[in-house]
Design a protein around this nucleic acid. Sequence first.
DNA 1: TTGAAAGCGCTACCAT
DNA 2: ATGGTAGCGCTTTCAA
Lengths: 354, 354
Amino acid sequence: MKPTLQDVADAVGVSRSTVSNAYSRPDQLSAALRTKILDAARRLGYPGPNPTARSLRRGYVGALGVLFTSELSYAFTDPFAVRFLAGVSRTAERHGTGLLLMPLPADRAQVRGVVENAAVDGFCVYCVGDEDWALRAIRDRGLPYVTTAPRADAGPEDRYVGIDERAAARSVAAHVAALGHRRVALLGETVLPGVAPGPLRLADPTDASHPTTRGRLTGFADAFAAAGVAWPAITVLNATANSRAAGAAAVAPVLAGDAPPTTVLACSDVLALGVLDALAAAGPRPAYPISVTGFDDIAEAAAAGLTTVRQPAEEKGRLAAELLLEPPVDPAEGHLVLPTDLVVRTSTGPVSGS
Amino acid sequence: MKPTLQDVADAVGVSRSTVSNAYSRPDQLSAALRTKILDAARRLGYPGPNPTARSLRRGYVGALGVLFTSELSYAFTDPFAVRFLAGVSRTAERHGTGLLLMPLPADRAQVRGVVENAAVDGFCVYCVGDEDWALRAIRDRGLPYVTTAPRADAGPEDRYVGIDERAAARSVAAHVAALGHRRVALLGETVLPGVAPGPLRLADPTDASHPTTRGRLTGFADAFAAAGVAWPAITVLNATANSRAAGAAAVAPVLAGDAPPTTVLACSDVLALGVLDALAAAGPRPAYPISVTGFDDIAEAAAAGLTTVRQPAEEKGRLAAELLLEPPVDPAEGHLVLPTDLVVRTSTGPVSGS
DNA sequence: TTGAAAGCGCTACCAT
DNA sequence: ATGGTAGCGCTTTCAA
């Protein structure tokens, strides 16, 4: 068996407390005794105080749980998520706190298990949408948590860091509308659950299943309504994942259709890049250029000349972690709304035809 | 105080064991009683069994520690690291295991603390070089671990997944040598510790401080030696970080010099992209094109037309995690060497001048 | 400066 | 099907 603190104590002939002090409170015993104890520990192969036991006794863990809606690997695959995490990790690092990355299983029954089993001091919930059951599990854990998506049922206790999704979306859409576009398609991920890629019927933008998507679609709708394009005249496209491939697959049908849109506004850069891919693959099918916009302003967006809305990804992560690790005295300061910028590049231009 | 299992037991009038069973072994009690217990728990606001206490009792944690030499945020910033982690996380996910990301502090004294305090079942050591003290701390923990950099003192117990660094490096260098290049610069990150960006004197490739760099420089040297270029004739460039900016800063001096090299071989794609950046920034300073090569084959490499060595990043991560989570019965199978490919693109060409 | 005692919250064995 | 008992390995008063 692995040696324990008790074994070391026995070997040296002191009490457990003293051995414990040798590790955790060096000032509580003579240097000589401490050396003697540490030497004995080394000799016995004692690996130092067991972290789990220590946590149990001390009552805190020294780790933050980072929860993802999608599979965990998404965290390392989606550019925006990666930058968000970089921000979180920077803060965690400063606090000597670990980051426990946790996938949120699609199976509801398993969610509770994951949340309940996590040895952490708080949760950073990345991108949980209307998965209320998930948030309920987190709440039930009784630990502090911070979300990045707006929630209808947010209480004063809830910590949040995000952007004004609707206003941000309105800004790109207004830009596109000002360029004269009237034949419009909006593209989102999982606009409704379990729907195939491509166009779908959405009675109202607020029917979208994910709050972030909801906010963005609503903002898009706002701007076009102001330009005289009513909601029913707008095509909504569903992507089955937040990836280039899924974005491309979602637009493909309308591109091949009779009256393709003159502009496609995507709810993320990744999706928008997929649209660009599809356009490139389709060749000069529609006789006019199609204006495409994204959301987030990831690194690839600049290279692709994508018009988009910039939101401060790392900052968002940094602040989320700070909300947990350096809780504001005034709970009202636990609700942060960050600024966004419209970034106009070459993927949008005046409507030119047909 | 937060309610405990005991409180629930008292409220229902059963023993703690029964409450525990209600959570962990539903088949051990009647459905009716279980419901009754769970209801009471909900009513009391009992968050479910405390994960720390459970881990202590059960003797395992359900988490893997992922250790980075550099700061933690590097994990989310370096493209190769990100893909490696994606692989690790995929496997962890399959096992319902969490990933505890841990920065390895530069301060040696703190390293032990970090390693000793981590509540994990094993360590995946990403890119620890000659930081022996770090590995020693890990070994002392007595938990299984896997490394991705070759180690001189590796024992039969050690699990490892990597590539043949030297042979891989030799393959790119041979390609460049075959193109006629003889004025050669090699670029690595922290070739020697604490050295300024730019050229440095390295008596022998095996003097490089990091084993990975050592292997790659040695491979480069092999190929050029075979082509008649002796080691002392080769310029070694030091970058102070593994980033584009650092790569650019490291080559800048020689680009501005009297007799710039006709080729620069970098130890990573990120560094190589930095060289390309510097070349672009410098304009047509040397009157001939400079051939540049990278290492890893990250996504950006393809877009930039970078000639490089491809190594299976995600696979590496996946296998590393599997080595921990599905330990091979035969310890000899704990040492994996993955294949690499030379990918020739447009960044290399025949020597043309001066 | 050191040690004894009292748990932290839970699970697993073995009875009943 | 349920409960009693005995710790998991540690830290932290408090008293000596």
